[in-house]
Design a protein around this nucleic acid. Structure first.
Length: 203
DNA sequence: CATGGGATTGACT
DNA sequence: GTCAATCCCATGC
């Protein structure tokens, strides 16, 4: 698997968030296909980088193509891909995966059996993949975490956009992207959800 | 230096 | 539907 190059991430964060749906995330023996993402940009208050460059946010302002892993609610590690040129605070939150490889290991780490419960949430997938905050600022092409293109056997996913989940500020922005029809997303799609990519004919 | 809130989850009513 | 767990760090005194 050839990881996506840094140039893939050095683009508008909304494009990257949409395009990451269908791609693969691998850490060690475990991997999954991305079925849900959210975009965050320093210009809006839901983004950690909104407060500017601090010790906490320095990764977000770093070069594109590195992981921003932070602890949420004191318990969960959340995985992001840093985007846009260096100096622009922006990242894509990986919110859910469809388990692909190392499913037995995922079940061990998660303590649940159902496939749909292994990676259907940003805190769940990091636990399933064994990703911790120690991997913050590591590269996504050649580092311990690797993000690669969509599996050859998969067809191009139909992606839909909706509002982001679990935030209080800038909650109205439709910056959440889901693979339509996936049973592995963290939450069902809201009614206001609208297509971001046209459905392919014949599907 | 003390405080408070958060891009969540799971358990419980 | 509600709520606690529990860590990092930004903010304010």
């Amino acid at each position: 698997m050839t990881p996506l190059p840094a140039a893939f991430y050095r683009r508008p964060v909304l494009e990257v968030a949409r395009d990451l749906v269908g791609c693969t995330v691998t850490h060690g023996e475990a991997s999954g296909v991305i079925v849900e993402t959210e975009a965050y940009h320093h210009s809006e208050p839901a983004c950690h980088a909104y407060v500017g460059l601090t010790a906490r946010t320095s990764t977000l302002f770093g070069p594109p193509g590195i992981a921003y892993v932070y602890r949420s609610y004191g318990i969960h590690a959340l995985l992001n891909a840093v985007c846009e040129p260096e100096g622009v605070g922006a990242a894509v939150l990986i919110r859910a995966l469809e388990p692909l490889e190392g499913i037995g290991l995922m079940r061990e780490r998660r303590g649940v059996e159902r496939l749909e419960e292994l990676c259907s949430g940003p805190g769940k997938l990091t636990q399933a993949l064994g990703i911790g905050v120690d991997l913050n600022a590591t590269g996504l092409a050649g580092g311990p975490i690797a993000i690669g293109p969509r599996p050859a056997a998969d067809s191009e996913p139909v992606v839909a956009a909706g509002t982001r989940i679990g935030i209080t500020r800038a909650a109205e922005l439709p910056w959440r992207f889901c693979a339509v029809g996936s049973r592995h997303v963290s939450r069902p799609w809201p009614p206001e959800l609208r297509p971001a990519l046209p459905a392919r004919s014949g599907e």
